[in-house]
Computed example of a mutant assay.
Amino acid sequence: MAVKVLVVDDSSFFRRRVSEIINADPRMEVIDSAVNGKEAVEKTAQLKPDVVTMDVEMPVLDGISAVRQIMAQTPTPILMFSSLTHDGAKATLDALEAGALDFLPKKFEDIARNREEATSLLQQRVLEIARKRPLLRRATRPASTSGTGQTASPAGGVRTPARPASRPAVGTSSSSKAPARFTATGKRYQVMAIGTSTGGPVALQKVLTKLPANFPLPIILIQHMPATFTSAFAQRLNGLSKITVVEAKDGDTLKPGHAYLAPGGMQMMIDGRPGAARLKILDGGERMNYKPCVDVTFGSAAKIYGDKVLSMVLTGMGADGREGARMLKSAGATIWAQDEESCVVYGMPQAVAKAGISSEDLPLERIAERILVELNLK
Rank of each mutant, 00 (worst) to 15 (best):
V126Y: 00
M71L: 08
A355N: 01
A248I: 12
A248D: 13
L79G: 03
E360S: 07
V3Q: 03
P105K: 12
M71Q: 06
L93D: 03
V245C: 12
K280A: 09
Y260W: 11
S146D: 13
E128H: 00
V202R: 11
V126M: 01
I21N: 04
D87E: 13
L254S: 06
D87C: 00
V56T: 02
W336Q: 00
A331L: 00
R131L: 08
G318C: 05
S82I: 03
H258F: 13
R137I: 13
Y290M: 09
K255C: 12
G88I: 10
T85F: 09
E20I: 09
Q123I: 03
F215G: 06
V345G: 02
T209S: 08
D102A: 14
G264T: 09
Y290V: 06
S174C: 11
N114A: 05
Q69R: 14
A259L: 09
G321H: 03
G265S: 10
Q150H: 05
S19N: 03
T44Q: 04
V202N: 10
S342R: 04
I111E: 04
Q350V: 04
L104R: 05
E39T: 09
A178K: 06
E109F: 11
G147E: 06
S175T: 13
T244H: 10
L377D: 01
T53H: 03
N376R: 15
P256Y: 06
A40F: 07
Q223G: 02
L240R: 13
F215M: 10
T85P: 05
A34E: 03
L6G: 11
T148I: 11
A155I: 12
M1G: 13
L127E: 02
D32Y: 02
A262D: 11
T297A: 13
A234S: 15
K329R: 12
G37M: 08
S311N: 09
L254C: 10
D283K: 02
L47S: 06
I129L: 01
R16P: 00
I281L: 08
T85Y: 08
R322F: 04
N289C: 00
M312K: 07
